[in-house]
């Protein structure tokens, strides 16, 4: 009997079909890299707190958002676009003014002795504040911290904060901490 090879299937169109499927899945899928603003919540307060830890008035920067999404900082109504500059001025206190936060010299590896600000931004919101406004305010405050970190990184290491090495970043994070306190919600003029 003559040896006969089996006729091969024509599979060249197979690649076309699977390419089609592949492109379909490529286009419809979103490997959604979730983005966000990260924060750390404070531990719950102890049951019986007799006297609250004293914080000097100069060390605290109060930002309030009411139920109509209006903003109050520095004791007066303010605009969202001015918030970042004010927050930077408060946290940086470049001229060591007596009404802006105190500083405490801390030894930080890579940076040496650095005056870490004791300032805390206290963010207070109402129950009726919209989430969007709240995120915008958080965003501005984060932007203030990030810009300050970037400036420090450029002065000390000659490169942007994003390009700095892990150790350098850790040093900068210690020098300029994210000191934003999200206070317990108030019910001033709020519905619900």
């Amino acid at each position: 009997m003559a040896k006969r090879s089996t006729p091969g299937l024509n599979t060249s169109s197979m690649a076309d079909i699977s390419f089609l499927l592949l492109t379909f899945f490529l286009m419809t899928s979103s490997i959604n890299t979730d983005l966000g603003i990260s924060r750390r919540l404070p531990p719950p307060p102890p049951e019986k707190q007799e006297d609250k830890p004293e914080i000097h008035q100069r060390n605290i920067f109060v930002v309030k958002i009411n139920s109509h999404d209006a903003l109050l900082f520095d004791g007066q109504i303010g605009e969202l676009r001015d918030l970042k500059e004010r927050a930077k001025e408060f946290l940086g206190n470049p001229r060591n003014l007596s009404n802006l936060p105190e500083k405490m010299a801390v030894d930080i590896p890579l940076l040496g002795s650095y005056d870490v600000s004791k300032g805390v931004i206290s963010l207070q919101n109402d129950r009726g504040t919209s989430y969007e406004m709240y995120i915008q305010v958080q965003n501005e405050l984060t932007a203030a911290v990030n810009e300050m970190r970037d400036e420090l990184s450029r002065i000390k290491f000659g490169k942007s904060y994003a390009d700095a090495s892990k150790e350098q970043r850790e040093a900068i994070e210690k020098a300029i901490p994210v000191s934003i306190s999200e206070a317990e919600p108030t019910k001033i003029g709020g519905n619900k």
Binding site: D34, L35, G36, I37, S38, R39, R40, L41, P42, P43, P44, I65, N125, D126, R127, G128, T129, S130, Y131, E132, Y134, I135, Q138, N139, E182, E184, P185, G190, K192
Partner: peptide
């Protein structure tokens, strides 16, 4: 992960509940 039209009251309740349960690391998805 909250809708932008949600009121902060709900979010604050969640945050308080998280604090009570020892979940302190929080991310606002945007």
């Amino acid at each position: 992960k909250a809708d932008k039209d949600v009121r902060m009251g709900t979010i604050s309740d969640i945050k308080q509940e998280m604090r009570k349960n020892g979940a302190f690391k929080l991310i606002y998805t945007t």
